[in-house]
Design a protein around this nucleic acid. Structure first.
Lengths: 168, 168
DNA sequence: CCGAACATGTAACCTGTTACATGATTAC
DNA sequence: GTAATCATGTAACAGGTTACATGTTCGG
């Protein structure tokens, strides 16, 4: 009955419920919507079915909320906590390379003729700076999300350093 | 008729055909299979349909190969080159944050009790070192892929520095 | 009272995965 | 000759996106 392996979205849902205090489907979904990562839109059509799968697998328990809004309060079961820990402590999954749109494109910038290349690099520097400003503006983060935010900032700093070397 | 917007896989396919000398569907697919990134498996069921879409959209032209193997030689059309450049020079797409499995999990490691936490961090350090060794072993890379490889290595170095700070 | 935010969910669609199926060429 | 590699593709399935549908509560 327990799921074979969690998807990234399912792991992230368990994280929201178990360590970030998002105890309803709606709050989980809103947390994804507000996250700066482009990887998920936090769409209802992804989050609600994912939670339904986790409930069916016995990893999330639900109790009806007190209001008449139809709210269901979510919590991790013992199995859910175990599945979450297995998910986030797997070294192969955690340290694999992932999908980085910058890495996929950077090699191609070097193929452009000089003037166009400098123009593109300048636009990229501006875009990275804008992303960094967004990341630095967050001061309402819990400790778990804080670390994710710091890592995202470090990656943008790395991109910036690379661009400044490439553009000079 | 021209596609509205390219997926990451479609952009990567155009890159393989246009800038990395992979002039058949099979070579494109094999290049993805051998890539260290975990984001795509390079499965036939993804690559062949993607190429079919790009051909239908007029971005890739095909001519039959000389052998009887059924090989079709691929090349970018003028529209294909334009679409590829639009794809890789879009600053918003290039500088967005992407799906990083490490970033998604790192905050949770800090919630573990001390001994278990050190154990997990040590396993992560070993896994990152193993990934870095794989990345450093490649010396058969063309200039475009070289840069992607360098960026992947820089990201693993960043992870390693973070882990050593967290584990100390 | 009305709009914004809360709250849940479904249906059509698109894309990627796994596994399968087929056949040609090359190396031993 | 036979195994590995080259070469192309499809079918069933899983999961995410967009857009839609429904109803509740709260602030002005």
């Amino acid at each position: 009955m327990a799921k074979q392996r969690l998807t990234e979205l399912e792991g992230a849902v368990l994280t929201e419920v178990g360590h970030r205090g998002n105890d309803t489907s709606f709050k989980v979904r809103r947390a994804f919507e507000r996250s700066p990562s482009s990887s998920w839109s936090g769409s209802a059509g992804a989050v609600y079915p994912a939670i339904a799968r986790l409930v069916a697998a016995g990893l999330i328990a639900t109790v009806p909320g007190e209001t008449r809004r139809g709210t269901r309060l979510l919590s991790l079961t013992a199995e859910g906590r175990a599945a979450l820990e297995a998910w986030f402590t797997d070294p192969l999954a955690a340290c694999s390379i992932g999908a980085d749109p910058f890495r996929l494109r950077a090699g191609l910038w070097e193929t452009l003729p000089g003037a166009r290349r400098r123009e593109v690099i300048a636009a990229m520097i501006a875009a990275v700076r804008a992303e960094m400003a967004k990341l630095e503006g967050r001061d309402d983060l819990d400790p778990v999300e804080r670390i994710g935010n710091d890592l995202a900032r470090m990656q943008q700093e790395m991109r910036l350093a690379w661009l400044e070397r490439a553009g000079g």
